[in-house]
């Protein structure tokens, strides 16, 4: 069988899933559902971003909404006040958040466990307070209004359906880059640090450098998610970037499972959809939300796709060698031959 046919068959579930996502907005004419799917997409980006830290390198970051907010405000300010084109502002959102990631990571990444967690929580709090109180720059509690719809290389993203396709493209790109990144020498170093920092260092892994790099990459993606959010709702205020938001992200990883690529996607889809599904029983909504979390934690504490043993590398995005020994025959590398 030719390699391409084999690959296609092996990847057929993912290809079908992607195809379904492309067709979905046409089959579901309901704009409200399309909107929810856009939000799910934004949270998938955020969850993947946090997954790199909490899942792969094992740093417990609990203030991720700080980077999310910085991204959203950067893109909003640059398009509304500076009149920058969307593409540029979008990229800057990631870069500025990444720069903050570096500034926060450099001094704090020597901290371990709960101390680092507290530092990130403090960061989130500071970002939120600055957004709330720096009236002249951030608009204070009123936030920023009239954020333009994106125009990408001449394509005006006007309708919700169009925005949905824009988000889908971003999500696919994020998952693609992440899947490749974690399944490379870089990703192996991250997991090695998570598993045993001392042994990783003894093998020549510069632990601090890798932690800072992972932090910056993670912040970059969170910033991108912020820009995606700002240009979709077109009005942002500090309330969207509180610690509650950070905790939702943690809940997504707890539910879906971290340390693999599928968990954050499934977690985001479920946790964002649940409140909407239960909208009919509005007063019990949060109760059910909590109940689902408790049940999952009881039945599967590592999350639905969790435990680091669930190594889903997304073959579609990453055709690098995986299995190296089958029975008595060596297959030094399948893809490259």
């Amino acid at each position: 069988m030719p390699q391409i046919v084999k690959d296609t068959l092996e990847n057929s579930p993912m290809i079908l899933f992607l195809a379904a996502l492309v067709i979905a907005p046409f089959v579901i004419p309901n704009q409200y559902i399309v909107q929810i799917m856009v939000f799910i997409g934004i949270y998938v980006i955020l969850a993947q971003s946090l997954n790199l830290l909490n899942g792969y390198i094992g740093l417990i970051a609990i203030g991720h909404a700080g980077f999310y907010g910085i991204g959203a405000y950067t893109s909003a300010k640059l398009t509304v006040d500076a009149g920058l084109p969307f593409e540029l502002a979008f990229l800057c959102a990631g870069l500025v958040a990444g720069a903050f990631g570096w500034a926060l990571g450099r001094p704090t990444l020597r901290l371990e466990g709960i101390y680092l967690a507290l530092a990130t929580l403090g960061f989130n709090l500071i970002v939120w307070l600055v957004l709330l109180n720096w009236n002249s720059f951030t608009g204070g509690p009123l936030g920023i209004k009239g954020i333009p719809r994106p125009t990408i290389l001449g394509w005006e993203v006007d309708t919700r359906t169009e925005y949905y396709f824009f988000i889908l493209a971003v999500v696919v790109t994020v998952v693609f880059t992440m899947a490749r990144l974690v399944n490379s020498r870089f990703g192996r170093a991250l997991v090695a640090i998570r598993e045993d920092q001392l042994a990783a260092a003894a093998m020549g892994v510069d632990v601090t450098r890798y932690k800072v790099q992972a932090f910056v990459i993670s912040a970059f993606y969170a910033g991108i998610a912020g820009a995606c959010y700002a240009h979709f709702v077109r009005y942002i205020s500090p309330d969207s970037f509180t610690m509650l938001e950070s905790f939702i992200l943690l809940a997504i990883l707890a539910l879906g499972g971290s340390g693999n690529m599928i968990g954050p996607i499934v977690g985001a889809a479920i946790l964002i959809a649940i409140p909407e599904l239960f909208r009919a029983v509005a007063e019990y909504r949060m109760l059910l939300y909590g109940l689902v979390l408790i049940i999952i934690m009881q039945v599967r504490p590592q999350g639905l796709f969790g435990g680091h043993h669930y190594n889903l590398h997304l073959r579609l995005f990453d055709r690098g060698p995986r299995r190296t020994y089958r029975g008595d025959a060596f297959l030094p590398s399948e893809a490259e031959q």
């Binding site: 997991v191 090695a192 598993e195 045993d196 042994a199 990783a200 892994v205 680091h308 190296t324």
Partner: peptide, 13 residues
């Protein structure tokens, strides 16, 4: 060792 990694991945590190 990096317990959650395979033999191959451990040695690759």
């Amino acid at each position: 060792l990096f317990r959650e990694m395979t033999v191959m991945e451990n040695v690759l590190v």
